[in-house]
Computed example of a mutant assay.
Amino acid sequence: MTPTTTTDRQELRSHGPTLGRLVGDTDAFLEHWEHAPAVAEASADVARAFPLDRAFSLLGTPGLPVSCFRLLRDGAPVPQQEYSAARERPGPGREPFADGAALLRAYEDGATIIFEEVRLLVPEVAALASGLEEDLGFGIYCAAFLTPAGNSGARPHYDLASGLLCQIHGSKVWSVGDPSERWPATPCGDARPEFDPVLETVLRPGQTLYIPRGHPHAGAATDEPSLHLSFAIKPRTWRDVLQSYIRLGGTPEPLRELLPLDHAGRSPEELAAEAVDRLRAVLRSPAE
């Protein structure tokens, strides 16, 4: 595990007001960064960014594209055709509208409604997401999850992005396990990972659950509707840095040279080590 540095903590103390609103004590939060789930206390104003009544009012807002929503029933996706309404003048590239009445029927039938474009639709949520981007230096994807009482949303799964889940209304039981592979690069897909929980909690309004990327998890609403905001931290890794350097900076001469004639008999690890040595030499040499 790579420890969080003092510099990281100082940066978040001086430039992290939004993160502090979501997790309270940023020092305590950083002890879990990238390696362990945690429950934190959020500021009271976070819940006011997207209260339950506003979520229901969005469902009935006319003219919203159907892609603003995604539905899950018993963990499986609900086809868009079940909650879309055709435009009066359909045509190529003209997306159907969301059918508010159909969305409510699906919800009453046990479907979880995911507000995919909540950042574009609710300025207060957009401000939180933008502030978090400024604090962390990573892109943020924001969605809201409205789950009927006694129902679950997604099946057990892991995500490729770490997430901050801020409970707005109701409560949700969460189980989070350790990853089978640390920081995976392959999506979970339709797999349902089995795991022994390392954290089990009932998340209540005003609390935030941090789930590092790759950690399997599952959640279910208790005896009342659950609404939470999810802030997914888009990962940018060292591999991304190297790929961007080569793609955007041009390929330096030492990396354009053909592999040696005996490369077929050498291991991938040996070839990678030599490639790293060549890249290191390029970075150390003065710019031409």
Rank of each mutant, 00 (worst) to 15 (best):
E194T: 07
A106T: 01
T5E: 10
Y158K: 08
R192F: 03
R9P: 06
F56R: 15
F145R: 09
L146N: 08
T61Y: 06
V39F: 01
G100C: 07
S267E: 04
S43H: 01
P77Q: 07
G163S: 15
P179Y: 04
L132S: 05
P197A: 14
L283M: 14
H217F: 05
R266K: 09
T208K: 02
D25G: 05
D159F: 12
Y210I: 01
L258K: 05
D196V: 04
L165Q: 06
E31T: 10
P212T: 09
D262H: 07
D53I: 01
D99A: 15
M1T: 15
G265R: 11
L52D: 08
F97S: 15
S267R: 15
L258Q: 02
A275W: 05
W183A: 05
E269W: 04
W183F: 09
R87N: 15
V173Q: 13
E274V: 10
P79M: 03
D27K: 02
P216C: 02
A47K: 13
I114R: 11
T6S: 04
W238I: 12
A127R: 15
G170L: 02
V78T: 14
Y210L: 02
I114C: 11
E269A: 13
D223E: 11
P92N: 12
R13T: 08
V173F: 05
R48V: 03
S285N: 14
V66K: 12
F50M: 00
S267C: 00
V122R: 12
G163N: 10
P197E: 02
S67N: 15
R247F: 01
G177E: 00
P123Y: 14
P37I: 00
K234R: 08
E134H: 12
R192Q: 05
V23K: 09
D240P: 01
L52A: 15
V173T: 12
F50R: 07
E108S: 08
P37T: 03
W33Y: 14
L103P: 11
P286T: 10
V125L: 02
L160V: 04
P260C: 10
A273T: 14
P92E: 09
Q81F: 00
P96S: 06
A264H: 15
L199F: 00
G63I: 05
R21Q: 10
G16T: 04
P96I: 06
W238K: 13
R280Y: 07
Y83N: 07
F115L: 13
P254S: 13
E117P: 00
P148I: 01
E88G: 03
V198Q: 12
P252R: 13
L22D: 00
R182I: 09
F50E: 09
H157L: 01
L136F: 00
E108H: 02
H157I: 09
L64N: 15
T186D: 01
T147K: 13
H32P: 04
S43V: 00
H263R: 07
L227A: 10
L258Y: 03
P260W: 07
P77C: 07
T26W: 14
V125M: 02
L30D: 03
S84C: 02
E288F: 06
L248D: 14
S43C: 02
Y83W: 09
V282Y: 13
V23E: 08
R70S: 08
A275H: 12
Y83K: 04
D27G: 08
S180N: 00
S14A: 15
G189T: 08
